[in-house]
Simulated scan of single mutants.
Amino acid sequence: MTRSDLMPIGAFARRTGLTSSALRFYADSGLLAPAEVDPLTGYRSYDTAQVERARTLRRLREIAMPLAGVQAVLDAGAEEAARLLDEHLARIEEDAAARRKAAVVRSALGGDPPGLLIATVKGPVLADAVEQVLTATAHEPGMAVLGGLHIEASAEAVALTATDRYRLSTRTLAPARPAEQTWSGTVDGDDLRAAAPEVRRSPLVRVEAVPQGIWLRLTGRKDRHCRTLPGEFPDRRQLFASLGEVTTRATVAKEPLLRALEEHPGDHVTLRVSAHEVTVGPSADDHPGIPVAATVRGGPLEIRFGITTLYPALSTAIGPDVMLDLRGHDQPVTLRSADRGDLTTLAMPVALDHPA
């Protein structure tokens, strides 16, 4: 394999019709491992020979084939793959007929009419994602959407986003089954928090959109209704596209960095990024602070945060390492996992001369 045969994950995603988050999910599931992973940055590259496998994987998921079935089809010969496909299609037709009959029975009993299916996801995964992202919410008069979780659902991905204006967190999940059509809306955060414990105990959750809300259809448990909120939610894509160029990138172990923040006595903390470490402490030069080893690319940088902004952004990161993408002392910092980049948080700094 030559370097010219490799493409970055973003280019591979565009070529295959899969999102980058879905590719990370399928890599973690063992279905489609990248051809190469940079040991320093965690960046993933794919071989042009993997394009057809990825496209086949996407088509199989579009017909609601579970991961085990996808693996079996991809690894089978042509004749066996055709047989497995026929069996799966027969099950889909039976399930569709059963859902239609259930809807008739539910209507006759006076139950809630079924809504538009917008996502089917694993309950424990959804509960974790909801709790992680909802740490970036806020309750402010006249801005109800800041207390909600914005959901964007499509056949390929379910994106969850929340913001309190100082921090924005977004996580993308791979659906267990494709949605009937795309949907977006902002769901009341308090309703979702109350539902999370039951969601966590449901192997699968069907998310259905109805007027003024969504239904979480749980397996073997009572379904939960969550209200949608009025108002326009900030466009996360536009926000990420407007960010400046990364000038310094630091990869640091999450737990030592969190411990250093916990030991810091003030309400605000300064991070000093140097060649091989991130130092956590006050802004005054006569206080050396707590050094944490880091892998750093780019120049030195000093940046200051409120503890209530930085600590939850770090504590909800996935995996043992956190990658900090810095653009200057007065620009938003992107925090994401260095090994699985499906939870991304933007954190706003404060002025360096802000009192401690």
Rank of each mutant, 00 (worst) to 15 (best):
M1E: 10
S4G: 07
M7C: 14
T16N: 03
G17A: 09
S21D: 15
A27H: 02
V37F: 01
V37P: 00
L40R: 12
S45I: 01
T48D: 06
Q50L: 01
T56R: 15
R58S: 03
A64H: 11
A64G: 06
M65H: 05
M65T: 06
L67K: 09
A68T: 15
G69L: 09
E79W: 01
A81L: 09
D86Q: 15
E87V: 13
E87G: 12
L89K: 13
R100F: 05
V104A: 12
V105L: 12
S107I: 09
G110Q: 06
G111A: 08
P113M: 06
P113A: 14
L116K: 04
I118M: 07
I118Q: 03
T120I: 06
K122F: 13
G123A: 06
L126Q: 10
L134E: 06
T137M: 11
H139D: 11
P141Y: 04
P141A: 08
G142D: 08
L146R: 03
L146K: 04
G148P: 01
L149K: 00
I151S: 10
I151E: 09
A153Q: 03
A155M: 09
L160C: 11
D164P: 00
T170R: 13
L173F: 05
A174T: 15
R177D: 06
A179T: 11
E180Q: 04
E180S: 13
T182Y: 02
S184L: 00
V187M: 02
D190L: 06
R193E: 06
A194E: 12
E198Q: 15
E198V: 08
R206K: 11
G213R: 02
G213M: 06
I214G: 12
R217A: 08
L218G: 08
R221H: 13
K222P: 03
K222G: 08
K222M: 10
H225W: 12
H225M: 07
C226F: 07
L229E: 05
P230R: 02
G231N: 01
E232C: 01
R236V: 05
R236P: 00
R237D: 13
T247Y: 03
A250F: 04
T251C: 08
A253G: 10
E262W: 03
H264V: 00
D267G: 12
H268Q: 04
V269I: 10
A275R: 14
V280R: 00
G281A: 12
A284H: 13
D286Y: 13
H287M: 12
P288W: 12
G289W: 14
I290C: 01
I290A: 02
T295V: 15
T295R: 12
G299K: 09
L301W: 01
L301V: 11
L301F: 10
E302G: 05
R304Q: 14
F305W: 08
T309R: 03
Y311D: 10
P312R: 04
A313D: 04
L314S: 07
S315E: 14
S315K: 13
S315T: 09
A317G: 13
G319R: 04
D321G: 04
V322W: 02
V322N: 01
L324W: 02
L326W: 13
G328F: 01
H329D: 15
D330E: 12
P332Y: 03
V333R: 01
T334M: 14
T334E: 13
R336H: 15
D339S: 12
R340N: 15
D342I: 07
L343T: 07
L346Q: 11
P349H: 12
A351C: 00
H354I: 06
A356L: 15
